[in-house]
Structures are given as C-alpha cells and as structure tokens.
C-alpha cells in the first residue's frame, strides 16, 4: 500500500498504522508518541500527541477525513495522503495537546529523576509553548511506594496507560489499574498492592515521564552524569541484554536497552534490574548508542538547562514553593 506523509511516499504492508509508516520514513516525518508502545498490544490512542491530518483518505475515496486522527491507531489505506509537520492545523492542535498534558504537571524537572530522559520534557521543548496559560492550583497526590523497588509519583503521570497494559500483558497477576475518572483518575495498584512478580520493573522503562521511577536509583545521580553501556549476562528469565548506567566502576542503575524511538528492545527481569548491581555481574559489550536528539546527549545539555530555568521561572510566577525549600 502506498501512503504519502508530508510529501514522502512509502510502500507499506496492509495493516500498518500511519505512525509506523511515518517511522519507516524516519524522524523528519514521525509524529511524537507518548502513549503508543509498539511492544505492547492495544496501546495508543490516549494522549493524542500523534494526531495527523488525513488530506486524502484513499485512492478510491479522495476526500479528506474531517477530523484529525490518532496516527498510532489509524491504519493506512492505499493512496492515502497525510500531513504531519506540513500542516499548520496539526501543529496547532498538537500544541494544544502538549499544553493539556502540562497544565496539571508539576514542572518539577529540577528535582525529577527522569529529567534528561523524559519524553514529556522533549515534547514540551519541541512542540509546546514557552509559557503556560494555566493559572490554577495543580493536581496533587501523595507519593506511593509500589513495593521496595518502585516509586509512583502520580503528580507527574500523563495517564498513557502503558504501565497498565504492561502489567496486563507481561505479568501474571493483574493488580495494576486505573481508579477514579476524568482529571481525578490515577494509576493504582488497588490500594497499594505490591506489584510482585519477575517483570514488574519494566513499568519504570515504559513510563514516558517520571511517574514510575526506580527506588534503588532515586536521587543517586543525574542521568547525564552517568555513562551508559550495553551489557549482557546469562539469565534464565530474560534475554539478559541490558543497559548499565555507570559512574566510574559503580553500577548506579540497570535498565532495558532502548531503540531509536525510546522503546525497550527486550523487557528484562527484576533480578537483572535490581539485584545485579556489580560490574562483575556483567559482560560489557560497549558504549550505548544514545540518540543525539535526546536531551541526555551533550548537544542538548544547554537546552535542558534552558528548560530548567524556564520551568523554575514558571513555577515562581505561579507561586510554587522553591525547590530547595521543599521537603
């Protein structure tokens, strides 16, 4: 099937979504995706950051689709024409989505462990506005410990549902879900039930923001001061292919390896993630390829600072408690 995205044509198999087709073409036309996760079924459709304009539905039906569509959940049709970055309407609409995602976000990047590898930070930086128009009190929740390894910081959650789907699809017991509704909805483990199984730690990797973080790594180090390397060990539960985040000889954190779209290559087990924290546990394969586009990469370090300064200014303007005064 032939589909044209931002003027570039590509031939894709039937059943391919617009987002997948765009990713095949490359970064220059691929819409940002906050909730879709190619390795998990039925993800996508929620955040609406990936919306695009279908200017021609198919060869048979040359009419445009009147409303923007979620590219991650819309399959291509032969002869379809799509506008992403070439449509002012899409750019405006996406700006709206980014603003919605940020109005209740605490903008606490300076104290957030995810800073530097946060998809929302990237998104806000690339597709948002510098200033917020939201003047009301932001949503606040208590932090929750999900067992001794994972922290849930609901204030930062964007309800992408990735962790919910992961727990549904990868782990044996479904103890994780969403309670309440609307803007009071929250990720829950049904009243703090511990997600207790071998693959639960993967929720940390699929979380696009700093809502689910690794308690064994929390506040140890800024990620941009650590050195990522790809490493391997023989594991009977998972592939054993991981990424180690090193400071000198010390293993500060173990995560799955990520592909160019920020998605896990292979889900890893909790033993590899939380228990193998010595360099001698691993065979190091070499330095990890970190996307130069990401704010972790040195290139964007200045921008990250800029973003932090911006966030602080915003918070000050909104009467937020200064970070150093926070408990």
């Amino acid at each position: 099937m032939k589909v044209t995205i931002d003027g570039i044509e590509i031939d894709v198999p039937k059943g391919t979504t617009i987002l997948q087709a765009a990713r095949m073409i490359g970064k220059k036309v691929a819409p940002p995706a906050m909730c879709y996760y190619s390795k998990l079924k039925t993800t996508g459709g929620y955040c609406r950051t990936c919306i695009v304009k279908v200017t021609k539905a198919s060869a048979q039906n040359p009419n445009p689709i009147p409303k923007p569509v979620a590219s991650c959940r819309t399959e291509v049709a032969d002869g379809m024409e799509v506008q992403n970055f070439t449509s002012q309407e899409v750019i405006e609409a996406r700006k709206g989505v980014v603003e919605f995602l940020l109005i209740n976000h605490p903008l606490d990047c300076p104290i957030c462990d995810q800073a530097g590898e946060c998809k929302l930070q990237d998104l806000g930086y690339e597709h948002g506005s510098a200033k917020t128009r939201y003047e009301f009190k932001r949503r606040e929740y208590e932090m929750i410990d999900i067992g001794d390894k994972i922290k849930l910081h609901m204030n930062r959650c964007i309800l992408c549902y990735r962790c919910v789907k992961l727990c549904d699809q990868l782990t044996d017991k479904r103890v994780h879900g969403v309670i309440h509704r609307g803007d009071a909805a929250e990720i829950s483990t049904y009243i703090k039930n511990v997600i207790d199984n071998d693959f639960s730690g993967n929720v940390i990797d699929v979380c696009p923001v700093g809502a689910l973080t690794d308690r064994t790594f929390r506040f140890k180090q800024r990620v941009w001061f650590t050195k990522p390397v790809d490493a391997k060990r023989n594991c009977d539960k998972c592939s054993g292919k991981v990424r180690l985040w090193l400071k000198g000889e010390e293993v500060l954190r173990v995560t799955a390896r990520m592909d160019e779209w920020g998605e896990v290559e292979d889900f890893i087990c909790n033993a590899c993630r939380f228990e193998k924290k010595r360099k001698s546990d691993w065979t190091i394969e070499g330095p990890s390829k970190i996307d130069r586009h990401s704010v972790i990469s040195q290139n964007h370090y200045e921008h990250l600072n800029e973003l932090k300064v911006k966030a602080m200014k915003q918070q000050k303007a909104l009467g937020f408690m200064p970070f150093d005064k926070r408990p």
Partner: peptide, 14 residues
C-alpha cells in the same frame, strides 16, 4: 470525563 484522552481530561476542568 472518563480521563482517557488528554484534551477532554484536562480541558474540561480547565
């Protein structure tokens, strides 16, 4: 609002 999608979840309250 059920809270699944960002525009409705955040926009209606705003």
């Amino acid at each position: 609002s059920c809270g699944q999608c960002s525009p409705c979840r955040e926009g209606t309250g705003w």
